[in-house]
Nucleic acid binder design. Sequence first.
DNA 1: GATGAATGAGTTTTCATTCAT
DNA 2: TATGAATGAAAACTCATTCAT
Lengths: 192, 192, 192, 192
Amino acid sequence: MPKDTAILDAALDLFETLSYGSTPVPLVAERAGVGAGTIYRYFPGKEGVVNALYQRWKQALAAAVVDGLDRSQPAALIFEGIWRRLCGFATANPAAFAFLETHHHGPYLDAGSRGIATDLDRSMAGLLAEWQRAGSVRAGDPQLLVAQVYGGLVGVTRAYRDRGTELPPDLADQTIEGAWNLLASPSNRRRS
Amino acid sequence: MPKDTAILDAALDLFETLSYGSTPVPLVAERAGVGAGTIYRYFPGKEGVVNALYQRWKQALAAAVVDGLDRSQPAALIFEGIWRRLCGFATANPAAFAFLETHHHGPYLDAGSRGIATDLDRSMAGLLAEWQRAGSVRAGDPQLLVAQVYGGLVGVTRAYRDRGTELPPDLADQTIEGAWNLLASPSNRRRS
Amino acid sequence: MPKDTAILDAALDLFETLSYGSTPVPLVAERAGVGAGTIYRYFPGKEGVVNALYQRWKQALAAAVVDGLDRSQPAALIFEGIWRRLCGFATANPAAFAFLETHHHGPYLDAGSRGIATDLDRSMAGLLAEWQRAGSVRAGDPQLLVAQVYGGLVGVTRAYRDRGTELPPDLADQTIEGAWNLLASPSNRRRS
Amino acid sequence: MPKDTAILDAALDLFETLSYGSTPVPLVAERAGVGAGTIYRYFPGKEGVVNALYQRWKQALAAAVVDGLDRSQPAALIFEGIWRRLCGFATANPAAFAFLETHHHGPYLDAGSRGIATDLDRSMAGLLAEWQRAGSVRAGDPQLLVAQVYGGLVGVTRAYRDRGTELPPDLADQTIEGAWNLLASPSNRRRS
DNA sequence: GATGAATGAGTTTTCATTCAT
DNA sequence: TATGAATGAAAACTCATTCAT
């Protein structure tokens, strides 16, 4: 494994377990199997590590959600596709998904990291706005709807984490109905 | 203002702005208008401050949600009452509401703090379970439903925060329909 | 002794013995009889210490040279007065005098420190320019003459230092003739 | 250019700009156009580099001063020859000349380097002692006289450096009168 | 009780040096 | 022989906590 990847993986684990503030850099190094100084060859400093980590996973999340989406389908089906990808991503990378939420407001995140986060939100809001015009999604500020439905998924993953349980493979099945009904206009709601 | 309150208020502000890890205790003291040593007369240490802060606000939130709830009404109305109280609390105490979420997983929280958090979740889940038995809420693990709907509110408050906008007075109106439809069984859904 | 003075005195000793670059801050603290952290209460950092030290002694030197100078006397006598003050300062504070020279070009000196150094040079050059107009000092760029004659004193103090000998009380007597003849116009030279 | 010369040249530049203490070895290597490890093939370490540098230039200075000196001339003329050589050396190698002064007291200089420095001083002092016996130079400790007159030259080169100006080609003309008058016995002084 | 100057343990970071290639 | 990535020892600096006033 390349050293920068090893460092980011170690940092992800430790930042989630101990929090960013109380993870000493040498501990990240040890966990990554490299010398403490090596971290500074790959990243400009501790903040550089969090930001690289945040951007890496936020981009991975964005890619996972958007890649290969068939936009010709009805809204409910496209949404289901997105939701399944989101849940799949969270299940496959629970620590990374949690990390993205926990550190969303970290004062150590730089403009680049914040920018990536905003981009994803905006493109989702754009999709919702289309569906609102088509009548399949109810009225309301699309960015807030995205925030509410996405926040719901975050809440569920947190609940599993609080319980000490892994995210289940059928996470999407458990949550899709609530998620879609939160958004859908009356005639487009799910019945089962 | 009593000194312990002044200290907690200052800590709330600073922990939200700078994060717990990078807020020096002397800065909290300065902001609170007391000497650095004084903090140690009222709290056992920095961790004591976060925990007191967390418990204070989590209890305030629980009280705000539950107090004076009329349980004889139909589920949809009770839920609306709870939701309005929740939104009212978040609007009135946005920093505290954000703090509770941001620090939910802090490794510095002690058993007492975690316990309070769990209690509130559980009592909400109990209510939902009742409503499931009565047919007004759809099937599913009640704790996860609570987590999903509550996570939605957290998501919306974050979105406002990201925008740099205050939470609006009609926050509940904006979000209640989505929130209830996320939970409700088909025949109990809101139409507008 | 006030702590900041103790710190500066310890720093002076150590910077002269070990050089600025190889003096660890904790060693300065130990020598000053304070904790390592205390240095950062009084100075913004290691560079803050050198700069404070430089400014303190450069100002002391300027004061020692200029204070109570009787400008109504003939040039040769005024110069002798200045020279005796300079030599007296160097003899009384040999480490400080050496420090000022050794660190004159240190890249860690800030604008404030450089400014003080320049001020003293300029006021001496102004005096020389007067004497040139009066015919008692030979022609030439006054700033360079100041640099040459002052450099001579620095050279002599270095020579004593290299020998491991203290500066002698009659340093001025040993050097005044050469110093003045370096500057004087032919008819004003010293004969003994 | 041979690699060891490239390394020494790079080191000279950097040590003068950044000081010895804050010049990283890898930066010297980069500037010299070699790999960091290569420096350790030519020198035993960073201290080895400064010492080689010091000795190289101190020897070059000694050679420049002494080579081809016609000792049969009168003292004033021999001195003028030496002074012109000194000034020529400083003008041709200003960084090296400054380096020799700046690092004169560096605690990283070894016995070899200090020895070379002392040798040059002593041979100059010997010359002065001869001239004292012949009556052309005034009385006084010859080593101190050497130190004073040489210090004057150092002071002047510093002054140019402080101004950000290159040393002028007529440096010797500007300074020879002062230098010789500092040393000369009354009847041997220069008149213009 | 209240203070805040002082501390030193624990951070982040740098960089001379090594050694596998 | 030359390299430069990797290292870890040592540096600068921060800050939770104490305690004399």
